[in-house]
Every structure is written in structure tokens, then in C-alpha cells.
């Protein structure tokens, strides 16, 4: 399959990318690894008039510990994130698609694409992460909780570029990510990300987020509230996980109807919490 025609422009700085976005109008798109965009273009579900290739912009691929947080360059491929020490995100990145895709797909591309069935959006949301975007007026930081606005829509303006992802280091937390999909490399039918901190046998902090249970990734607030302060036991986890589908609105699709997705959310939530509580 061949994409529609487009103009191709390679840029070598963030400023040039932003200028190219402004000049290119709303049909211009940034191209990094291209593993979300190019398949859509081949299916003619997307037909941008101009692709601005940012893959050669220096300094945007890398992972750095900065005090109590991780700073992850937007061009960091999933394979590199999977091999890193970034809590939860390393575990999640290792489950994305297959090795070939993980070598090309980038964290910035995955978040900017805003697909609720992708793995990294819910994980960054669970960690209360943020993204740094550059636009004509300079840079701004957008909290993950304010970033995913609707199905494949984000808070990024048409002339803004996502340059960095920041997540707290989460020292002392345990993590789990449980995904149900039909084939090894498929998108999640449903997945659940969990981060839990245990102190003196009690769950002192609980973060849970859901993949593909609505038009955006969601926090499972009811589960978090139910488990926070409770003993770190199988019983407490099982009871809290029963609330995983509260407040969700999963669309029925070819893979599953809404009831089944709610069931999956509860089962996967329990497994993710159990994994998060397992000794490291």
C-alpha cells in the first residue's frame, strides 16, 4: 500500500520544526519513528500534506535521572526505554508490539498520537508524569492528566512539538502492567498499570491507570481510594480491584463488548496490583 503524496522536509532543530509546523498549516505532521503515522497513511486514514522529519534533531533521544525525576527525550525508542531503569515505563515499553516496532517507535510519538489503546499513555498518567512542549511562544509543561483530551486528541496545539517526557522516579514503589490482547503484537483490548508503595505492611500510595477503557487513558480512582491505607494483602487487593471499571466507558468493538472489557479491567487490575506488591 502506498501513501497519498506529501511534501517531505527534514529539520535539525526544535525551532525549525516549530517554524515548519507554522508554515505548513494544520495538515502538516511531525514524523519521528513513524510507527503510528505511516501505517495510518498507508491505509489512507491519514493524508498529511507535509511531513516534517524530526528524527535527526540532536539531543532528543536519551534518558536522564534529574534528582527525583526522570527526563526522557521524545525521540527515545521503546527498546531503549524497555532496557532502562525508569520504573513502570520500562516494564510497559517491553510489552509494546514486537522487537522491530520497539526499535523504531518513540515515546513522544506514542503520547502525541493519543491512542487510548497504546501502552505508554496510561503508564505516564499513572505516574502523574508530564510532557514538555515547544511552540512559537516558547516551552510549556503539560500534566499528563490534562494532556489526553479525547480519542487520538491531545492538548498539543497544531504548532507545538512534544520534546520531553518527565516522570517521578518513584523510588521504593513496586510496579505491574497487565495486558490482554489477542495476538502477541496486538494493541491492548484492555490493560492496567499499577504502582504501589508499601510501608510497614500498608499500601501508603497506590496509582492505577487503565488502557483502552474509554476514549482516553483513565486513572482508576476508586481502586486507588479503596486500597490506600489498607494492608498489603491479597484480600485487600482483590477487594479494591473489583472497583476497576467504575467510571469507565469502554466502547464495544470487534475484540470485546463493554461488559467483557469491564471484567478484564477488574481481573487485570488485581494481577497488576499483585505484581506491584511482589518483592522486587
Amino acid at each position: 500500500m502506498i501513501t497519498a503524496e506529501f511534501d517531505y522536509q527534514r529539520v535539525s532543530s526544535v525551532a525549525d520544526a516549530v517554524a515548519a509546523l507554522q508554515a505548513g498549516g494544520e495538515d502538516a505532521k511531525l514524523l519521528a519513528g513513524g510507527h503510528s503515522l505511516v501505517p495510518l497513511m498507508k491505509l489512507r486514514l491519514a493524508a498529511p500534506s507535509r511531513l516534517i522529519d524530526i528524527s535527526g534533531v540532536p539531543g532528543l533521544a536519551g534518558i536522564e535521572r534529574d534528582g527525583a525525576q526522570w527526563r526522557i527525550g521524545a525521540l527515545t525508542p521503546h527498546a531503549r526505554l524497555a532496557a532502562s531503569d525508569v520504573g513502570l515505563l520500562n516494564r510497559v515499553a517491553a510489552t509494546i508490539a514486537d522487537p522491530q516496532v520497539r526499535n523504531r517507535g518513540t515515546i513522544g510519538g506514542s503520547l502525541a498520537h493519543g491512542d487510548p489503546a497504546s501502552d505508554l499513555p496510561a503508564a505516564v498518567l499513572a505516574l502523574d508524569g508530564s510532557v514538555v512542549a515547544h511552540g512559537p511562544d516558547g516551552e510549556r509543561t503539560i500534566a499528563a492528566s490534562a494532556f489526553f483530551s479525547d480519542y487520538m486528541e491531545t492538548a498539543l496545539a497544531p504548532d507545538e512539538m512534544l520534546c520531553e517526557v518527565r516522570v517521578p522516579a518513584m523510588d521504593g514503589y513496586g510496579f505491574g502492567y497487565e495486558k490482554f490482547h489477542r495476538r502477541a503484537e496486538d494493541w491492548a483490548v484492555v490493560a492496567v498499570a499499577a504502582a504501589v508503595k508499601v510501608l510497614d505492611g500498608a499500601c501508603v500510595d497506590v496509582r492505577v491507570a487503565l488502557t483502552n477503557m474509554a476514549s482516553t487513558p483513565l486513572r482508576a480512582g476508586a481502586v486507588e481510594a479503596a486500597l490506600r491505607g489498607q494492608p498489603a494483602t491479597a484480600e485487600a487487593v482483590a477487594a479494591a480491584a473489583q472497583r476497576a471499571a467504575e467510571g469507565t466507558d469502554p466502547p464495544a468493538d470487534l475484540d470485546a463488548d463493554a461488559d467483557y472489557k469491564c471484567h478484564l479491567a477488574r481481573v487485570l487490575c488485581e494481577r497488576a496490583l499483585v505484581a506491584a506488591l511482589a518483592p522486587a
Partner: peptide, 18 residues
């Protein structure tokens, strides 16, 4: 699948210009 700078990649999902 081919190797691009040593990494296995799917060459149907990469533009030649990339």
C-alpha cells in the same frame, strides 16, 4: 524485516527518506 544500523526493523513501515 531488515537491519537498519544494526536494528531489526519492518521495512514496509519506514519511508526510504527516513
Amino acid at each position: 524485516t531488515v537491519h537498519l544500523n544494526g536494528d531489526a526493523v519492518k521495512s514496509c513501515t519506514i519511508l526510504a527518506v527516513q
